[in-house]
Structure formats: C-alpha cells, structure tokens
C-alpha cells in the first residue's frame, strides 16, 4: 500500500533574531570600549578599595625598570625621562586644568622612581592622582600583609 507522503517541515534554523542578538552585543562592546592610550604592561599592586578612575585622565606609567611613559589622555603615550615629568605635568595643568593623573606603576618598582613622579606632580600643582590597582581578594588580605 502506498502511503501518502507526509508534509515535512523543512530543516530551517530560525535566524531572524540572530541579527538582533548580534547588534545587542555590538552595542555592549561599543559602550564598554575604551581605546587605551597607554598600553604599557605593568603588574599593578593589589588593593581592597578601588574607585572608578575618570575617563578623562592623564596617565603616567612606571615600569619595574623605572621607565616612564606619559600621556595627557589625548594621544598615545610617549616615553619620557624622569626629569621631564615635571614639564609634562606643568603643560598638562596649563592645557587641561583639573584633569586627574592616573599613576600606573609596577608593584615591585623601587619607590624612589614613584617618589620622583609624585614630586613632579606636586610641583606642577596637579590636584588629584589615582594609584591604579587591581582587586585584592579578602582572603589574600590576611597573609598579604608583609612585614616580619
């Protein structure tokens, strides 16, 4: 006996919403994107307290070797001599009054390198600096406290 051919539903993947999902993701990435002006890789110190750094900020990075790179936040960062940080800071304060400076220094760098930078910023009368850090977990807080 010959059976009637059943009506088969075609194997169609519903792709109509695909574009919607994709555009949603696009919007997310567009909102979160920040074109980093300073791409220096440093091992940041870890802190429990962390506050959001304003988007409009100048960056000064200090590597573990004590090399310094600066950017006003308008252009890509450029390497400078430690002695020239004060000139950079003075120009920054003149061009963008009130702009905070984000200090992105390596965890292990000798403090004198950072000291020189902070001193330059103080001389240039920069108002606020941010010490960039990574999140420290509470568990690490107990044994993280050096000393001894």
């Amino acid at each position: 006996m010959r059976l009637k051919r059943r009506h088969e539903s075609g194997a169609i993947i519903p792709t109509a919403s695909m574009a919607d999902i994709a555009f949603l993701l696009i919007v997310f990435f567009m909102v979160t994107i920040t074109f980093e002006k300073d791409k220096t890789q440093v091992a940041l110190p870890k802190t429990e307290l962390r506050y959001e750094v304003p988007k409009e900020a100048a960056y000064i990075s200090v590597t573990d070797q004590g090399q310094i790179r600066v950017t006003t936040g308008e252009e890509m960062s450029t390497p400078v001599d430690p002695e020239d940080v004060v000139t950079f800071a003075a120009n920054l304060v003149a061009s963008f009054p009130g702009r905070p400076v984000v200090l992105k220094a390596d965890d292990q760098v000798a403090y004198r390198n950072v000291d020189k930078v902070i001193d330059s910023l103080k001389q240039a009368k920069v108002e606020t600096i941010y010490l960039l850090s990574e999140q420290k977990t509470v568990d690490a807080a107990g044994d993280g406290g050096g000393g001894g």
Partner: peptide, 12 residues
C-alpha cells in the same frame, strides 16, 4: 580591553 580603570584616589 577591559582595562584596569580603578584605583585609589589621592588628593595632593
């Protein structure tokens, strides 16, 4: 880049 954009602020 999910940049580390957080830190401690310090008023000079």
């Amino acid at each position: 880049t999910f940049a580390a954009t957080r830190g401690l602020d310090f008023n000079l």
